[in-house]
């Protein structure tokens, strides 16, 4: 188990390094001169030269790379061209919002998706299954930005149940925070809950006809134990994989959701920085996103080995 995790951690680190290199080269391969973007279109050659020197852009690439790594290791992501404030502090305010949004969406989607999936599998051919299937179809086919707009229109503006936009930090008022973020989280989670519902249902249907479930039944275990400890636990192996893969979707979904609900999160930061060609911020945003993906993958693997003992042994053998 330990060795397996170690080897996965090492893999993750290598991937992260590759990402850093790619981001570094990618930014420099973009069309347009960052110095010109910094200085403005009609700046003099001497001004450009000064800026190039200031940002180290006149140095050879390896030297630039080394400087870049050095800065990264100090946790310094640079300064925003647009606002002049440090990218670090911008991320520090934006990331928690997005983290909360996606985590809550994931939680809601898992509860709804796995719950209805299990029900649909256990009550096959009953109204519950039709209801769950209908729900999944809607969840998968209706774009969530449209759902979001509907929700704002009817629930926020119409019924006044939720604020239509804005955000309150969880530290200043947890209740207000929840009030602001619950609707976006539900909207963001609908697609995922539909996906999870379908996966859970089909995995559970398989598991329920598996020999070990028959064994569990023949042992005289309570029906609830047969469902949860035996069938569901095995089904979760598939569901966790899908949830992990879908987390990427969730993050990109968060970008749109944050726009709709005007949440000051990572998605909003991304879009703003792209529109304003704020290179240091874009660079940081890409790096953070990639890191998030790598960390998520690592966590999914970790969860895997908790659920499925066979994974642990496979890692030990290799």
């Amino acid at each position: 188990m330990g060795r397996y995790l170690l080897s996965r951690a090492w893999q993750s680190l290598l991937t992260l390094f590759a990402v850093v290199v790619l981001v570094f080269l990618g930014i420099r391969a973009l069309p347009g001169d960052p110095a010109r973007a910094l200085a403005g279109e009609d700046s003099s050659p001497s001004a450009l030269k000064a800026i190039r020197h200031e940002y180290g852009l006149d140095r050879p690439l390896p030297v630039q790379f080394w400087k870049y790594i050095e800065q990264l290791l100090h946790g310094n992501l640079g300064v925003s061209i647009n606002t002049g404030s440090s990218v670090d502090s911008m991320l520090a305010t934006a990331l928690p919002v997005t983290f909360e949004l996606t985590a809550l969406a994931m939680l809601i989607a898992s509860l709804i998706g796995i719950g209805t999936g299990v029900l649909a599998a256990v009550r096959r051919g009953k109204p519950v299954e039709w209801f769950a299937n209908g729900f999944a179809l809607i969840g998968l086919s209706v774009p969530h930005f449209w759902l979001g707009l509907l929700a704002i229109l009817y629930l926020s503006v119409g019924a006044g149940l939720f604020p239509a936009s804005g955000f309150v930090s969880i530290w200043s008022s947890p209740l207000d925070n929840l009030h602001h973020i619950i609707l976006p989280a539900v909207i963001l989670g609908t697609g995922l809950s539909a996906v999870l519902m379908r996966q859970t249902r089909s995995a559970m249907v398989d598991a329920l006809s598996a020999d070990y479930v028959r064994t569990a039944k023949a042992k005289g275990l309570p029906w609830r134990t047969v469902i949860t400890r035996h069938a569901l636990r095995n089904s979760l192996i598939v569901v966790v994989t899908v949830a992990g893969l879908q987390l990427g979707e969730l993050i990109s979904g968060a970008v749109v959701t944050e726009q709709i609900f005007s949440l000051p999160g990572f998605g909003k930061l991304t879009i703003d920085s792209v529109f304003r060609r704020d290179y240091p911020v874009i660079q940081a945003v890409v790096l953070v996103t990639a890191t998030a993906y790598i960390v998520i993958n690592f966590l999914v693997d970790l969860l895997y080995s908790v659920i499925d003992p066979r994974v642990r042994v496979a890692g030990k053998d290799s």
Partner: peptide, 28 residues
Amino acid sequence: ESTLRRIRGRDIAYIFQEPMTSLNPVLT
């Protein structure tokens, strides 16, 4: 069903053909 559940495993127990699949892979 509740009566049967108490009988299964206690008064009448089963051994099935496939030892490879009749045990749950994720429990010790």
